[in-house]
Design a protein around this nucleic acid. Structure first.
Lengths: 124, 124
DNA sequence: CAGCTACGTAAGATTATCTTACCACTCGGT
DNA sequence: ACCGAGTGGTAAGATAATCTTACGTAGCTG
């Protein structure tokens, strides 16, 4: 895999993680003390991110750098990065909302079991 | 921790990993198709490494990017036991279902989070 | 429609990186 | 001691990337 490919994957992961975090480019830009167009270009793959920037992205999205880097599964953290994002979202819900969600999840899980698709994240 | 600190840590880790791999700067430079002074500057912390470069370093040193980044092993340890329970449920979902749920959660949060830093996007 | 937010993109100013070159240091062999 | 090869640090001009500001579009709301 070429380095350009890696950068493009990272760009896509950043965009995905930002969206799943419910943050706008402008909010991210402010958090990272960057200009909004910079975020736009990064996500478009037109601008590279430094390693330090990658870590900052991982911080504000609360995911591992390995996830943003699209590293192979056997090297990354035990928990699914998407779960990290999910947990972050969950922590913002009220207890009541969380309980409701838990019940809803039970239904989801039942549907899922019948199709039997085992976990993991989709790697490229 | 500032971003400069992160970059310096990464620089030190790269230097350490290279030495432990028994490679010279020249060898690394050749493998990564860089010039030797570039490696020298990177290890000195005078030159930043892009995210893609970081992954290439991790490859040739056979270490994880998390190691080069000095990342702590498990990032997600919610104190709330309810979150742990929820995370267990989430882990049983298919990736698609999880994605759908995440988008739904983002909408939820937007509804009861409307007041926070939503404004002030564009420049002065 | 008017106003707002989000996002993409262009262009000149600014800054970082690249490339070549030169320097000092170390180590074995002669 | 001298030499040659190997390693690593650094300087300087040319080159390339990024930053910063500004403008344009699209969606959504009252």
């Amino acid at each position: 895999m070429s380095e350009l490919d890696k950068e493009l994957i990272i760009a896509a992961r950043i965009k995905e993680a930002r969206r799943l975090s419910g943050l706008s480019q402008g909010q991210v830009a402010k958090m990272l003390e960057m200009h909004r167009p910079t975020i736009s270009e990064i996500e478009a793959g037109n601008r590279r991110v430094s390693a330090g920037e990658l870590m900052r992205f991982a911080e504000i999205f609360d995911v591992s750098v390995a996830y943003l880097a699209g590293e192979s599964p056997d090297k990354i953290n035990p928990s699914d990065p998407k779960l990290q994002l999910a947990a972050r979202e969950l922590s913002k819900l009220s207890p009541d909302a969380l309980n409701s969600l838990m019940r809803a999840l039970a239904v989801f899980r039942k549907d899922d079991d019948e199709n039997s698709s085992g976990g993991g994240n989709e790697q490229t």
